[in-house]
């Protein structure tokens, strides 16, 4: 096949299938990062630019719990998830809510400012060098025939489904979840019903950050930690969120897989460096032609 002077290589089906399956694993990681983001967008209607920076911060927390206290990255979830919740709660209550005066564009800029501060604080404190957690099981796994899956990849895949399910149950059946949905739908009405909107905003942000902390635990066994690691995921996470429909958990999960598979196939056919352009192209196309995403309700 030839296209604009590029000739696309042709591969056997097992190579393509192997690539697609590794795309599913990659996609589960994207979904994990995007879940918290989509929750924050769905309720607060804000684009949280600090999401990647918060992921990076949580990854450092997991790393230091392992290097300092020998705590297994998966076990560290018991510490970083509640920690992430309280950090997020405080951040929304004390910084974002206060500084943004309720204007969308200003919130965007405030979260960007937070991202810059967190990223450079990490650069300052921890330097730019990469740190990796060494777990005894990071190379073991199962042979899928066309590709090989290590246990951390399987854990991330399982984790993405579990967290999606947990969020869905939480939002559907708990009082707090119902209050969050009420605030998302009708802010003024929810206030009149006696819901403390500022508190619910902060709780939502806190849960979003808790999700990203869980994602960090699942990521650390396969990804090295450095101050820029979050920014690798920012654009991808936004793409997943918009593709899946802002505020939709199932959409984030499916969107994550779609992006993961597309990226891996893009790398296979267009090469390592040009392959990632598929993400930006999908992002632009979705924003233009279907800004409500695949699973999103009509905006309004």
């Amino acid at each position: 096949m030839e296209f604009l002077g590029f000739s696309l290589p042709s591969y056997g089906w097992s190579t393509v299938l192997g690539s697609a399956i590794s795309g599913v694993f990659l996609g589960s990681i994207y979904a994990l990062v995007a879940l918290g983001l989509t929750l924050i967008y769905g309720v607060l209607h804000i684009i949280n630019f600090a999401h990647g920076a918060l992921l990076m911060l949580a990854m450092y927390a997991v790393y230091f719990l392992w290097s300092g206290y020998g705590i297994d990255p998966y076990l560290a979830m018991l510490i970083v998830v509640p920690g992430g919740f309280f950090f997020g709660y405080g951040l929304q209550r004390l910084v974002i809510g206060k500084a943004s005066h309720g204007k969308d564009e200003i919130i965007l800029l405030v979260t960007l400012g937070i991202a810059i501060v967190i990223e450079n604080l990490s650069l300052f404190l921890f330097s730019a060098s990469e740190r990796s957690v060494l777990v005894p099981y990071d190379l073991d796994g199962i042979d899928l025939g066309v590709t090989y899956a290590v246990y951390p990849e399987l854990a991330a895949l399982g984790g993405s489904f579990l967290i999606t399910l947990a969020l869905w149950i939480f939002m559907t059946y708990t009082d707090t979840g119902k209050a969050i949905r009420a605030v998302a739908k009708e802010r003024q009405g929810a206030r009149l019903m006696g819901i403390n909107v500022d508190h619910i905003f902060a709780v939502t942000f806190g849960i979003g950050v808790a999700c990203v902390a869980a994602a960090a635990s699942l990521l650390v066994p396969t990804y090295a930690v450095h101050p820029q690691v979050g920014s690798l995921f920012v654009l991808i996470a936004f793409t997943v969120v918009v593709l899946g429909g802002m505020g939709s958990f199932v959409g984030a999960l499916v969107g994550g897989f779609l992006i993961g598979v597309t990226e891996q196939l893009g790398r296979l056919y267009l090469g390592e460096s040009l392959g990632v352009i598929t993400i930006s192209v999908i992002f632009i196309l979705v924003l233009l032609f279907r800004p409500t995403g695949l699973f999103g309700a009509k905006s309004g």
Partner: peptide, 14 residues
């Protein structure tokens, strides 16, 4: 060390 000025600019921005 790198990062000091951007920490400051980000804080000033907020």
């Amino acid at each position: 060390r790198p990062g000091v000025d951007l920490i400051l600019f980000g804080t000033i921005l907020i």
